[in-house]
Design a protein around this nucleic acid. Sequence first.
DNA 1: CCTTCAATCTACAGCAACTGTAGTTTATCC
DNA 2: GGATAAACTACAGTTGCTGTAGATTGAAGG
Lengths: 142, 142
Amino acid sequence: MLAIGTLSRRTGTKVQTIRYYEEIGLMNEAGRTAGGQRRYFEKDLDRLAFIRHSRQLGFSLDSIRELLDLSDNPSQSCAEADSIARRQLRQVEQRIKRLQALKKELKRMVAECEGDSVAECKVLEVLRDHSECLTEHDEIGA
Amino acid sequence: MLAIGTLSRRTGTKVQTIRYYEEIGLMNEAGRTAGGQRRYFEKDLDRLAFIRHSRQLGFSLDSIRELLDLSDNPSQSCAEADSIARRQLRQVEQRIKRLQALKKELKRMVAECEGDSVAECKVLEVLRDHSECLTEHDEIGA
DNA sequence: CCTTCAATCTACAGCAACTGTAGTTTATCC
DNA sequence: GGATAAACTACAGTTGCTGTAGATTGAAGG
């Protein structure tokens, strides 16, 4: 039987975060000692590791919930899991695209800055006037 | 004199967001009509546009606050604004790097999935077992 | 002048995904 | 049996908004 701190250490998850996952139903309710402390099995550790790893790959808690459901029912089709992963991949690619546009703009902004006083600062000037931008960046960078 | 809805339309900012910016002190407190509605000058519109544009470039509200301060005091050195922009650039580059690692991993995951049942689903397998990953991705993707 | 209706107002709850704090109780080790 | 680390609950705070409810206001048309 594992205490919550052991799960915490072994998965690099804050104790409060584990309790939070229980609260929102991602982790099963843990068994308790007579004194009320949570005690876990190895399988709980595996589940938490799955959640953490998925988070590291950028999946939302909602997606992870779906993936866990699939994982719990091994007879289902794999297609669902595949499509969740593809969706995540598309999102990541989207974000990269947007960030690359931002990077370009920021680079240009910084490169052109050579004035010594704020009055002639290119950085502030660009921020003041969107029309100086080369690219469109209408969505706020996630 | 401009109503809040006009600022909203002209900058693509939700009305509540403008009020929120006032609440946290990013926008100056607007003048009011006898009936209590906010009325703005052109300079307020400019300030809001500056804020929005900076947000689109991914600056945090705290950074924007600094940038606005600089912009309000045009005799200061430009170095400060420059360093804020460079910091932002570094952050963006960092995020791109991380996302590219994720993308690689997700691509591999999706590419290898060919089993038809969840039991042999590569996606779920990879999520279960971090050691199957090629890259480290210890930080949760922002 | 009066009605009407969109626009605005305040106040507060909610989102994602945690993180931090305070104050208390439990488990473990010597 | 005492000390101390670790666990407990409950709740506030983070970032940057967004949405809702219910009450007013302002401008245009008749």
